[in-house]
Design a protein around this nucleic acid. Structure first.
Length: 832
DNA sequence: AGCACGCCGACT
DNA sequence: GTCGGCGTGCTC
C-alpha cells in the first residue's frame, strides 16, 4: 500500500488554458482522484473567480515549479471531463503555435477546436457527495432516492433532466440534499455530452424466421414480418423500426415474451446523414483526371506534405479526384479529412462519399446539435470511422494517421474564422498536413489569388482540369450592357430586367424549364453608383469604393479616411448623379411577378431563410420542378445541382465591385463564375445573361469567356501596383466603443505611438519598405450594435517588422480604457 | 469574457 | 433608509 500522505504532499499541478481573453495559463492543484487523467489535452472544469470554466490542460508537473505562483494559493480543479485526451499532442502543439502566431489567447484557440464549441453553458445540476457514493455502494437508499443516486453515478446531471427521471423529484432532491447524499453543482452543457443510447432489438440466438414461418408463427404475420426485418437488419434501435412497424414496441414485447428476440441498450449514433444512398460505381477517369490524380496518389503513398491546387472548371470532375484521393488513403489504412465551405455543401459531398464508401463517415458542422456533434467527434476519436467531412472547424477533427486533407472551394471566405480564434482553415490545414506528413488538396474553379500565386512561385503544385466531363460545353454567357438599355418605364425608373433577359425568361418558361435570377445584394445601399453609367466613386489613394455617410454628407474612404463631397454630376458620364438605391430582391420579385403573372416564383434570401425549413422547402420545389423562377442572393450561387435550370440571369453584376474592399474584384469574379455555373449542369444547355454597366471590367469580361487566367493576370498586376496581398501582408486592428470621440482618439493615439516607434522597429535599410500604416478611419460598418467602430490597417512585406508592430498593437489594446474593445486580425479577409 | 465589488440617484 | 445603475479590476 503506498502511503496516501505521500500523494498528498506530492499533489500534482496542472497548467490550464481557459477560454478568457487573457493570454495566460492558470495553475491548479489536482485532487488525487483525478491524478490519472490530469494530463495535457484533457479538459478540466476549474474554479475561476466566482465561476466555473472548462479549459484544456496544457502542461502538468509534480511541483510548483511549473507555476508562477505560490503553490499554497492554488485552488484545486473540480473535475476532469475526459477519459482520453480531447486534443491529441499534435493538435495541441499546432493550436498553441497558431494561437501564438495569430496573437490569439491560447485558451480561446483551444476552445474553438473542442467538439462542444467555444463556450459550453452551465446549468444547475446535482452530483453525488462521498456520502451519497457510499449510500449507493452499500445499497442504503430506497425508492426514488435510490433512483436519483443511480442517475448521478456517472457524474453531475442537470436538475431539469432529473425532474423527468425521478418520482416526486422535488421532495426526493430536497431529502437527499438535506441528508448530504447529493450536492448542488454546475453542469457544463455539452461539455460532457453523453452519447445517446437506444433500446435495440435483435434476434435471440438460434432463431430462424423461416423455420418459425412453418408452424409457430403462421397465424401472426405481423410478428413474422417483423422478425424477418430484424433478421436482415441485425441489431436495430426499436424507434427506427416504427417507420415500417407502427406497433414495434408491442411487437417487441410479444416476441420477447416468446424468447424470440433480445432487447438491449446500445450506443447508437443518431442518424445525421439522412436518407439512405445507393451505391454508385466509380466512373472512368478522363485523361486529365488521371494526370491530376497521379501526383496526388504519389504524395499520399510517400507521405509527402505537399499542397496541390486542383484547378478545375465547374463540372470538370474535381469531386471524383477527391474521392479517389480518399480511396488511396483508405487503401493504405489512413484516414481522410474533407472540408467544404458551408453546411448545404456537406450534404452534397456526403452523398457522393456515401455512394462510394458507405455510411461509415463522420460529419461535423454547426448545424448539428451539441450532442450530435460530440457523438460524431467521439466516433472519430475512438477510430470507429476514418473519414470526416465538415465545415471550417472540422479541421480539428480528431483523426489519427491522416492520409489526405481536401479543401473544396478553397477560395471561399467561409474558411476564414472571423471571431475568437481568427484563423484561415487553408493555412491551418497546411500546417496540419505538414505535422502529419500528408498531402493537402485545394480544389477550386476560381482559386484565391494567394493560392494561384503560390502555384506560380512553385510553393504548391497546380493540377489543371480544363474540360468538363462528358464534353458538356460551358454555359454560354451573354452580356447585356445596361448603359445601352435606354428604355425607361412610365414611372421614370429604369427597368430591372433588360429586354434580352425578359425574352430569355419567357422562352425558358415556354419550354417548361427553370430560370434563376441572381442579385448580389451584399454590400451597402450607401455606395454611390451613377444611375446612367453605373460607375461608382473611388478613392484616389486606395482605389476602393467610397461610401456615403449620411451624417456628414461625405463620401469617405474606409481605408485611409480620404473624403470628398458627393459630386453634383457623375465624373464619368456627366449625368446628374443619384445613388442607385433600393434595388433589392424584393423589388426584383415584384417586377418579375408583374411581368410573368402566370409563372411560379419564389425568392430565397436571408430574410426568407430565417424561417426554419424555408430554404429546404424552396430548394426541394426547385428540384421537383414545381417552381419556374427562383430569385435569390448568393445563397443560390452554390450547392445543389439543379438539372432543369436553363437560364441564369445575373441582374446587376457590378454590385460586388463597389464593396469597400481590395478583394472586391476577386470576390465578384469568383461569385459570378459560380453563379454562371448553375446554368445547364445536366442535359439542358445553359444560358447565362449577365446584366452590367461595366461589360469591359476585368472582373466581368473573363466571366463571359470562362477565362480565369485573364482575370488572374490583371488582378495580380493591380495587387502588385497597390501593394496588396499576395505581395504584402496585412494586419487589421479594429476598436469599437460606445463613445465615438473616445474610440476615435484612442485609435489615433495607437496609430501615433506606432508611427513614432516605426523608425526604431525597422532596420535603417528597410526603413521605407517596412510597412505602411493606413488610417485610422471609420470602418465600413461605422456603427454596429450601437458601437462606433474604427480601424487601422498595416500593410507591408517585412514580416519581422509587421510582427513586432502587431505585438505592440496587441499589448496596447490589452490595456485599453474600459468601454473600448479591440481586436486584431492577421491576414484579414473581411474588413467591415 | 463575466462576475463581484464599489460608489451615487429614485423609490418604499 | 435601500434597491439598483454600470464603472473597473481580477480571475491560478
Amino acid at each position: 500500500m503506498p502511503n496516501a500522505s505521500l500523494f498528498q504532499t506530492d499533489a500534482r499541478i496542472v497548467r490550464v488554458a481557459l477560454p478568457v481573453p487573457v493570454d495566460e495559463l492558470f495553475d491548479y492543484t489536482v485532487p488525487e482522484a483525478f491524478a490519472a487523467h490530469a494530463r495535457p489535452g484533457f479538459r478540466a472544469v476549474v474554479p475561476f473567480g466566482a465561476r466555473q470554466l472548462t479549459g484544456v490542460i496544457v502542461a502538468c508537473g509534480a511541483s510548483p515549479a511549473v507555476s508562477n505562483r505560490n503553490a499554497t494559493r492554488l485552488r484545486p480543479l473540480v473535475r476532469i471531463l475526459d477519459r482520453e485526451p480531447a486534443l491529441g499532442p499534435d493538435m495541441l502543439d499546432l493550436l498553441r503555435e497558431m494561437a501564438r502566431e495569430l496573437l490569439c489567447p491560447v485558451g480561446i484557440a483551444l476552445a474553438s477546436a473542442l467538439p462542444t464549441g467555444a463556450s459550453p453553458k452551465s446549468v444547475p445540476a446535482f452530483e453525488l457527495t462521498e456520502r451519497g457514493r457510499q449510500a449507493l455502494a452499500h445499497n442504503v437508499a430506497r425508492g426514488p432516492s435510490r433512483t436519483l443516486l443511480k442517475l448521478l453515478a456517472d457524474g453531475p446531471v442537470p436538475i431539469k433532466t432529473l425532474e423527468r427521471g425521478v418520482a416526486q423529484a422535488d421532495d426526493t432532491m430536497r431529502t437527499c440534499l438535506r441528508d448530504g447524499l447529493v450536492a448542488k453543482t454546475l453542469f457544463e452543457k455539452g461539455a460532457t455530452a453523453k452519447e445517446a443510447t437506444a433500446r435495440t432489438v435483435e434476434l435471440a440466438p438460434g432463431v430462424d424466421p423461416d423455420l418459425l414461418a412453418e408452424n409457430e408463427l403462421r397465424r401472426a404475420p405481423k410478428q413474422l414480418a417483423f422478425l424477418r426485418e430484424i433478421a436482415s437488419a441485425g441489431c436495430t434501435p426499436i424507434a427506427d423500426l416504427r417507420a415500417s412497424f407502427p406497433t414495434a414496441p408491442a411487437l417487441v414485447r410479444a416476441l420477447e415474451a416468446r424468447k424470440l428476440v433480445r432487447v438491449g441498450e446500445k450506443r447508437v449514433p443518431r442518424n445525421v446523414l439522412g436518407a439512405r444512398v445507393t451505391c454508385v460505381p466509380a466512373p472512368q477517369l478522363t485523361d486529365e483526371q488521371r494526370a491530376a490524380l497521379e501526383p496526388i496518389e504519389g504524395a499520399i503513398r510517400a507521405k509527402t506534405a505537399q499542397t496541390f491546387l486542383l484547378h478545375g472548371v465547374t463540372g470538370s470532375g474535381k469531386t471524383e479526384i477527391y474521392l479517389r484521393a480518399v480511396a488511396a488513403a483508405r487503401e493504405l489504412g489512413r484516414t481522410a479529412l474533407l472540408l467544404v465551405p458551408e453546411i448545404p455543401l456537406t450534404h452534397q459531398i456526403l452523398t457522393r462519399l456515401r455512394g462510394r464508401f458507405g455510411d461509415n463517415l463522420a460529419v461535423l458542422h454547426s448545424g448539428l446539435s451539441v450532442s450530435e456533434r460530440f457523438e460524431q467527434w467521439s466516433r472519430l476519436r475512438r477510430c470507429e470511422t476514418a473519414i470526416a467531412v465538415g465545415a471550417r472547424s472540422a479541421l480539428f477533427a480528431p483523426l489519427e494517421n491522416l492520409g489526405v486533407i481536401v479543401i473544396d472551394e478553397e477560395h471561399d471566405s467561409a474558411y476564414k474564422s472571423e471571431e475568437g480564434f481568427r484563423y484561415h482553415a487553408r493555412d491551418l490545414a497546411q500546417k496540419r498536413a505538414e505535422a502529419c506528413g500528408c498531402p493537402l488538396i485545394l480544389g477550386s474553379a476560381t482559386p484565391a489569388l494567394e493560392t494561384r500565386y503560390a502555384a506560380e512561385t512553385g510553393q504548391i503544385q497546380r493540377l489543371v482540369l480544363s474540360k468538363r466531363i462528358a464534353s458538356r460545353p460551358l454555359p454560354r454567357v451573354q452580356v447585356v450592357d445596361l448603359a445601352k438599355e435606354s428604355a425607361h418605364t412610365a414611372s421614370g425608373q429604369r427597368p430591372i430586367l433588360s429586354r434580352a433577359l425578359e425574352r430569355a425568361i419567357s422562352d425558358t418558361l415556354a419550354a417548361g424549364d427553370q430560370s434563376f435570377l441572381f442579385l448580389n445584394r451584399r454590400g451597402f445601399s450607401t455606395k454611390v453608383l451613377c444611375y446612367e453609367c453605373g460607375k461608382a466613386a473611388h478613392c484616389k489613394n486606395c482605389d476602393i469604393a467610397l461610401v456615403f455617410h449620411a451624417h456628414d454628407q461625405l463620401l469617405r474612404c474606409h481605408y485611409c479616411d480620404y473624403s470628398i463631397e458627393p459630386p453634383e454630376h457623375c465624373p464619368h458620364c456627366g449625368a446628374g448623379g443619384a445613388a442607385l438605391l433600393g434595388l433589392g430582391t424584393q423589388r426584383l420579385e415584384e417586377e418579375v411577378r408583374t411581368r410573368f403573372p402566370e409563372a411560379r416564383i419564389a425568392r430565397l434570401d436571408r430574410d426568407v431563410s430565417r424561417r426554419k425549413g424555408a430554404t429546404e422547402a424552396i430548394l426541394t420545389s426547385v428540384q421537383e420542378g414545381s417552381l419556374d423562377i427562383l430569385i435569390g442572393t448568393q445563397m443560390i450561387a452554390k450547392g445543389h445541382d439543379f438539372p432543369n435550370v436553363r437560364t441564369v440571369g445575373i441582374v446587376l453584376a457590378d454590385l460586388g465591385l463597389h464593396m469597400p474592399d481590395f478583394r472586391a474584384a476577386e470576390h465578384t469574379f469568383q461569385l459570378l463564375t459560380q453563379v454562371a455555373g448553375r446554368a445547364g449542369r445536366a442535359e439542358t444547355h445553359g444560358n447565362v445573361l449577365l446584366q452590367t454597366f461595366s461589360p469591359d471590367h476585368y472582373a466581368i469580361r473573363p466571366v463571359c469567356e470562362h477565362d480565369y487566367e485573364a482575370f488572374y493576370a490583371e488582378e495580380l498586376e493591380y495587387r502588385r501596383d497597390l501593394g496588396y496581398p499576395p505581395f504584402t501582408k496585412l494586419i487589421h486592428l479594429l476598436i469599437e466603443g460606445r463613445d465615438a470621440t473616445q474610440t476615435k482618439e484612442t485609435i489615433e493615439g495607437l496609430a501615433r505611438t506606432l508611427r513614432e516607434k516605426l523608425p526604431h522597429e525597422t532596420s535603417p535599410l528597410a526603413a521605407e519598405a517596412a510597412f505602411e500604416i493606413l488610417g485610422p478611419a471609420p470602418c465600413p460598418l461605422a456603427r454596429l450594435r450601437g458601437l462606433h467602430r474604427y480601424q487601422l490597417l498595416l500593410k507591408g512585406s517585412d514580416a519581422v517588422a509587421l510582427r513586432s508592430a502587431a505585438c505592440a498593437l496587441r499589448d496596447a489594446s490589452a490595456r485599453l480604457p474600459s468601454g473600448l474593445r479591440a481586436r486584431i486580425d492577421l491576414n484579414p479577409i473581411h474588413m467591415l
